[in-house]
Simulated scan of single mutants.
Amino acid sequence: MEFTHFNENGRAHMVNVGGKDDTKRIATAVGSIKMNKETINIIKNGLIKKGDVLSVAQIGGIMGAKKTSDLIPMCHNIFLTGADIKFNVLDTEIEIEATVSTYGKTGVEMEALTAVSVTALTIYDMCKAVDKDMIIGEIKLIKKTGGKSGNYERK
């Protein structure tokens, strides 16, 4: 396997995807943010002064997916056909799942990973006044479909 983001001189470049076929592409990534049980309770009861944490984080994650090419240097600007963020609120952790889709020449793995990252960072930002011990972690791609490399599912 070779890296595609380097030219013949070993310098970084944006891969030319002009010759690729348009296909339906979907990627799902997950991550989590761990926090004190009291912080989870404050979120559940809507007592964070900045507002509804999960609603704002969901919007932040979708915005992050849309802005991925502005943040990651070699990512293509992609027209997204969909982006969704889901939460699983546990006793001391919020699990985050982002699914992003497009119909185009390049995949949306980076958009899904960015969506999870920005969602977790938004939760951190909204809750840092009450809990500075939060830990963001385990951000990973779990599934992708479409494209020349085919489907992938984490085992």
Rank of each mutant, 00 (worst) to 15 (best):
M110G: 02
A115Q: 01
I139V: 15
G150L: 10
N41M: 08
D22R: 12
I94Y: 01
N9W: 05
A57V: 06
D70Q: 14
G107R: 06
V100C: 12
G10I: 05
K155C: 10
V116L: 04
Y152I: 08
R11A: 11
I142R: 02
I85Q: 00
G51E: 04
Y152K: 12
N7I: 07
D131Q: 07
L113N: 12
K144W: 05
V100L: 08
D84G: 05
E8H: 09
V130K: 11
E93A: 11
K144E: 12
K143L: 12
Q58G: 12
S149A: 10
N7P: 09
V130S: 09
R154G: 07
A57W: 01
G107H: 09
E8M: 10
L54W: 00
M14E: 08
R11W: 03
K155V: 14
I42G: 00
I136T: 11
K44R: 09
Y103F: 12
I40A: 07
R11G: 06
V30Y: 05
N88R: 06
H5G: 08
I40F: 00
E8S: 15
G51Y: 01
K144R: 12
I62P: 06
D133Y: 08
I72R: 13
M63S: 13
R154V: 14
I123T: 00
N16Q: 09
I26S: 09
L47Y: 02
M14F: 00
V108H: 04
K143I: 06
T39Q: 03
S69C: 14
I136K: 09
T68M: 09
P73C: 09
K128L: 08
A57R: 00
H5V: 13
G64E: 02
G82L: 04
V30K: 15
T23L: 02
D91N: 14
K148C: 04
G61Q: 05
G64N: 04
E138Q: 13
T68G: 07
S149P: 04
A12E: 02
L113P: 01
Y152Q: 10
P73F: 05
N151Y: 08
I135E: 10
N16G: 13
L71P: 14
K155F: 08
A83P: 01
M126W: 03
T114G: 03
E109H: 10
E138I: 07
Y103A: 08
N77L: 12
K66P: 05
P73I: 11
E93H: 05
G147Q: 10
